[in-house]
Design a protein around this nucleic acid. Structure first.
Lengths: 183, 183
DNA sequence: CAATTCACTCAACACTTGTTGATTCAACGA
DNA sequence: TCGTTGAATCAACAAGTGTTGAGTGAATTG
């Protein structure tokens, strides 16, 4: 027994982070609806009322738990490789916050809105990088492909994808994305 | 007021179908958790208790509402065109039952299991049709692509995909899928 | 026509869940 | 040291939900 600093500010900061972390984990596992304040509180070893006191509402807790740094914009140089690199990264576990939004995006309107916004943004950037006539459609299909692979792999656990390494997936997917990127 | 046949068997058949139809619609819109027996009953203009009496439980109602005819196996000839054709079809609204399972697949374990099974099956058939070394991985990526496009279009409503016709999507996607199918 | 079956409704229970107000007690500032 | 602050808990409410059992009346059957 030591280390545990009993400073007020520090304790508060730590429990708040403990709650957020628990929330991210459980939101990512079960989605918004099936996640209960009580479950989060229990996982954070805290009274449910405290969660409310700190975050105001389940919805607010979700928003804060899910808040993640903006996706860095494509470097403009090689969009396809950029995307693939991101897939390569994604084949290691995605950040919990991202998984949480994705897990809820089909059943929670706000999560859907958030994802839609982020994807639309990516499409716009990609389309600009591509440039040609039906660039936007092709960009949308590229993004959709990424979305599908990520869902199948990270959230559904498609058996054929579970074994494969991120590198191998990226490598296999490259020609497909390139076909979309180039006219 | 006429036509309404007051035969017992017929009445029963009709209300049962009315309930199932309402269930499919609402499950497809909100997913499993957010769908209440009461909402289904109201939409079917029936007492909630009747839904229970006929189907036993919310879970059983879901299973029955979602039961859809098996996906016809690929003809073996041109898997890519087969898939694209299915996309072409899918760009018109998908059957409500399918939308219902898909809507719930990230948050309802049973729906996840069902979708996973169906996708695994498709992967297996596709892989067989392809044949080469990493056929299974490539097949899985093809299926994931289809999944992603369908989700983005039908469930998320990606703006860039909302306007595009099924034909045009299929056409644009073809080279991409072909790149995956052929070595 | 009398008895019975059965589609359908009503009212309620049991439980979960988000949320709240009063309360406790250790850290803090004077 | 002592009053104050604020982190944390406790008990409870109110609403919503799946589910149940008793009831009602029209269709059915003998």
């Amino acid at each position: 027994m030591e280390g545990t600093p009993t400073s007020r500010a520090e304790r508060r900061r730590r429990t708040e982070e403990r709650i957020l972390s628990a929330a991210r984990t459980i939101f990512a596992e079960r989605g918004f609806q099936r996640t209960t304040i009580r479950a989060v509180a229990a996982a954070a070893q805290v009274d449910p009322a405290l969660v409310m006191q700190y975050f105001g509402s389940k919805q607010a807790l979700f928003e804060q738990a899910v808040r993640i740094p903006e996706i860095p914009p494509l470097d403009g140089l090689e969009p396809v490789e950029e995307l693939l690199g991101r897939i390569g990264m994604k084949m290691g576990p995605l950040p919990q916050a991202t998984l949480a939004v994705m897990r809820s995006m089909l059943t929670h309107p706000d999560a859907a809105e958030e994802v839609r916004g982020k994807l639309d943004g990516q499409v716009a950037r990609l389309a600009e990088a591509i440039g040609s006539g039906d660039a936007e459609l092709r960009a949308a299909l590229m993004v959709s492909t990424m979305l599908g692979v990520t869902i199948a792999h990270q959230l559904l656990g498609l058996t054929a994808l579970r074994d494969a390494s991120g590198e191998r997936i990226a490598e296999t997917l490259r020609p497909s994305l390139r076909a979309l990127a180039d006219g």
